[in-house]
Each structure stands twice: as C-alpha cells, then as structure tokens.
Deep mutational scan, measured.
Amino acid sequence: RYTFRTRGPEQMKRVVEWARRQNLSYRVEVHGDEYIIHAE
C-alpha cells in the first residue's frame, strides 16, 4: 500500500503510469494543486 503526494498533473501522471505497470489499483484525490495518489 502506497501513498504519494505530488504537485501538478505531470508528476501525478508519472505516478499513475508506475502504478499501472505494477498492476496496482489506485485512486487519486485532488486538493487544490496537490494530488494524493493511493495505490495498492
């Protein structure tokens, strides 16, 4: 189980790509310009 905090969509997309390659399920929360990605 991982939690990532990123700023801006570019970093968020990179984390999502990584999670997909690992076959993890993930969800993204948006708080202003901060993205929180939960993957497991």
Score class of each variant (00 low, 15 high):
residue 1 R to N: 08
residue 1 R to C: 15
residue 1 R to I: 11
residue 2 Y to N: 02
residue 2 Y to R: 05
residue 2 Y to E: 02
residue 2 Y to H: 05
residue 3 T to K: 07
residue 3 T to N: 03
residue 3 T to M: 11
residue 3 T to H: 06
residue 4 F to T: 01
residue 4 F to I: 11
residue 4 F to W: 12
residue 4 F to L: 04
residue 4 F to P: 00
residue 4 F to K: 01
residue 4 F to V: 05
residue 5 R to H: 10
residue 5 R to M: 07
residue 5 R to T: 09
residue 5 R to W: 09
residue 5 R to P: 02
residue 6 T to C: 15
residue 6 T to R: 04
residue 6 T to I: 14
residue 6 T to S: 04
residue 7 R to G: 04
residue 7 R to L: 07
residue 7 R to W: 07
residue 7 R to E: 05
residue 7 R to I: 08
residue 8 G to H: 15
residue 8 G to C: 15
residue 9 P to V: 15
residue 9 P to R: 14
residue 9 P to W: 15
residue 10 E to A: 11
residue 10 E to T: 09
residue 10 E to F: 06
residue 11 Q to N: 13
residue 11 Q to P: 04
residue 11 Q to D: 10
residue 11 Q to F: 06
residue 12 M to V: 08
residue 12 M to K: 03
residue 12 M to H: 02
residue 12 M to I: 05
residue 12 M to E: 00
residue 12 M to F: 10
residue 13 K to R: 14
residue 13 K to Y: 10
residue 13 K to E: 12
residue 13 K to D: 05
residue 14 R to I: 13
residue 14 R to D: 04
residue 14 R to Y: 07
residue 14 R to N: 06
residue 14 R to F: 08
residue 14 R to E: 09
residue 15 V to L: 10
residue 15 V to N: 00
residue 15 V to E: 01
residue 15 V to F: 12
residue 15 V to Y: 10
residue 16 V to Q: 03
residue 16 V to K: 03
residue 16 V to A: 03
residue 16 V to H: 01
residue 16 V to G: 01
residue 16 V to W: 02
residue 17 E to Q: 10
residue 17 E to G: 05
residue 17 E to F: 06
residue 17 E to Y: 06
residue 17 E to H: 05
residue 18 W to M: 02
residue 18 W to E: 02
residue 18 W to L: 02
residue 18 W to C: 06
residue 18 W to T: 00
residue 19 A to I: 15
residue 19 A to D: 00
residue 19 A to R: 00
residue 19 A to M: 12
residue 19 A to P: 00
residue 19 A to H: 02
residue 20 R to Y: 05
residue 20 R to F: 05
residue 20 R to G: 04
residue 20 R to D: 05
residue 21 R to L: 11
residue 21 R to M: 11
residue 22 Q to R: 13
residue 22 Q to N: 15
residue 22 Q to K: 12
residue 22 Q to S: 10
residue 22 Q to H: 15
residue 22 Q to T: 06
residue 22 Q to W: 14
residue 22 Q to F: 12
residue 23 N to R: 10
residue 23 N to F: 08
residue 23 N to K: 11
residue 23 N to A: 07
residue 23 N to P: 01
residue 23 N to Q: 10
residue 24 L to W: 09
residue 24 L to G: 01
residue 24 L to K: 03
residue 24 L to M: 14
residue 24 L to S: 01
residue 25 S to V: 13
residue 25 S to D: 09
residue 25 S to G: 05
residue 25 S to C: 08
residue 25 S to W: 14
residue 26 Y to R: 00
residue 26 Y to F: 12
residue 26 Y to I: 14
residue 26 Y to V: 15
residue 27 R to G: 03
residue 27 R to V: 13
residue 27 R to F: 12
residue 27 R to L: 08
residue 27 R to T: 14
residue 27 R to H: 11
residue 28 V to Q: 00
residue 28 V to P: 01
residue 28 V to S: 01
residue 28 V to F: 04
residue 29 E to D: 06
residue 29 E to G: 02
residue 30 V to R: 14
residue 30 V to E: 08
residue 30 V to W: 07
residue 30 V to P: 05
residue 30 V to N: 07
residue 31 H to A: 10
residue 31 H to Y: 12
residue 31 H to N: 12
residue 31 H to K: 11
residue 32 G to K: 05
residue 32 G to Y: 05
residue 32 G to F: 06
residue 33 D to S: 09
residue 33 D to T: 09
residue 33 D to I: 05
residue 33 D to Y: 07
residue 33 D to A: 08
residue 33 D to W: 06
residue 33 D to F: 07
residue 33 D to Q: 08
residue 34 E to C: 13
residue 34 E to K: 05
residue 34 E to W: 15
residue 35 Y to L: 04
residue 35 Y to R: 03
residue 35 Y to M: 05
residue 36 I to F: 07
residue 36 I to L: 08
residue 36 I to R: 03
residue 36 I to D: 01
residue 37 I to A: 00
residue 37 I to G: 00
residue 37 I to F: 04
residue 37 I to Q: 00
residue 38 H to D: 03
residue 39 A to T: 14
residue 39 A to W: 11
residue 39 A to Q: 01
residue 39 A to L: 15
residue 40 E to D: 09
residue 40 E to L: 09
residue 40 E to P: 04
residue 40 E to H: 13
residue 40 E to S: 12
residue 40 E to M: 13
